[in-house]
Simulated assay, not measured.
Amino acid sequence: MTVLPPSRTVTGPPPGTRVETLPSVPGLGGLYVRGAAGSAAAQIPGRTTATTLPAVAHRVEGVRVDPGHLTSYQHLLGETGSDALPSGFCHVLAFPVATAVMVRTDFPLPLLGMVHVANAASVLRPVHLGDALDVTAWTQDLRAHRRGTQLDVCAEIAVDGEVAWRGISTYLAKGVHLVGGAESSDAESSVTADASDQESSGEVGASVVWRLSADVGRAYGAVSGDRNPIHMSALSAKAFGFPRAIAHGMYTAARALADVGARRGPTYDWTVEFAKPVLLPGRVDVTYTTGADGAWTYAGRSSSGRPHLAGTVIPNA
């Protein structure tokens, strides 16, 4: 039996959630400044930290996609030129609205240091360039983890009042242990990055090599707005403990999605789990496997065999 990803089982904000409508999509630069200030304040001795998630969703209505923005994204990721928005681009559109929830003063975890460990997204109906998009984001399922605290950051894009896309991002706040809550059974990452382990009779496999340049983080930052210092340069990444800049996890996941291309169909589920970050410049060996049902499994590892990511792309009939 196929297990549905959380992006297919979540059906909107939890009961009792208040929706706050924002005048426009907030800029990620300003949000990161607020997030950094909040993270610093969380370290002040004696400061009381909330232990529940804000029962608030943020919404921006009537968002229009800039054609040049979509084209730049498609060129960078290797997506086919089309007016249908790839799921990875939908994530880019929703990310600032979701981040706005995570920098609220009543959000209990520091934004800096949060690790993106997994993502699931579903295109429930095609989203097209020219559609007026209503973007809603909220957080849910705060839970203890052996290495800190996990939660899910959820976002939806609706067209004409109907949810067309939904994404669920799972984050881990390492070393932050909140009072209460059952421990998550999830490991930090269960990625094996070996698609061949899942092959069975009748499956077809293929492999490619990505050679990522030192400026990939800056290029993806330009199209996504996510200019986190760990992605921008070796110098800025070293301040956060990395020997070199690292690729955005969602860049690697979206590139795998683009490699599957039109074979995913007009509506599909897309999942990824992240393991070791990709240092830039770097090489990723990626394996793709598909079965008779049309579902794709992908996995990426370093030349030394260390896993970077693994996931699925499943067309919906």
Score class of each variant (00 low, 15 high):
222 A>P: 00
286 V>P: 14
244 R>C: 10
262 A>D: 15
240 F>I: 12
188 E>W: 09
261 G>K: 05
185 S>W: 08
280 L>N: 03
289 T>F: 05
219 A>E: 05
289 T>Y: 05
202 G>E: 03
254 A>G: 13
238 K>M: 14
180 G>V: 04
255 R>D: 12
186 D>L: 02
222 A>C: 04
277 P>N: 04
269 D>M: 03
281 P>D: 13
183 E>K: 01
242 F>R: 08
182 A>Q: 08
218 R>L: 03
242 F>D: 09
208 V>L: 11
265 G>T: 06
194 D>A: 10
194 D>P: 14
241 G>L: 06
266 P>I: 14
285 D>N: 13
229 P>R: 13
235 L>Y: 09
234 A>K: 09
252 T>W: 07
263 R>C: 13
188 E>N: 10
198 Q>M: 08
269 D>Q: 07
235 L>S: 07
226 D>C: 04
275 A>T: 00
219 A>N: 03
206 A>K: 10
189 S>T: 15
208 V>N: 05
233 S>D: 03
217 G>A: 03
223 V>F: 05
209 V>L: 14
224 S>Y: 03
249 G>Y: 10
188 E>L: 08
281 P>C: 13
207 S>N: 09
214 A>S: 13
284 V>S: 13
224 S>R: 00
245 A>K: 01
271 T>C: 05
291 G>M: 03
225 G>T: 12
197 D>N: 08
219 A>T: 00
236 S>L: 09
268 Y>A: 07
283 R>G: 08
242 F>A: 11
247 A>C: 08
291 G>R: 03
286 V>C: 10
193 A>K: 02
225 G>V: 10
261 G>W: 06
269 D>E: 11
211 R>D: 14
194 D>K: 06
258 A>E: 12
245 A>V: 07
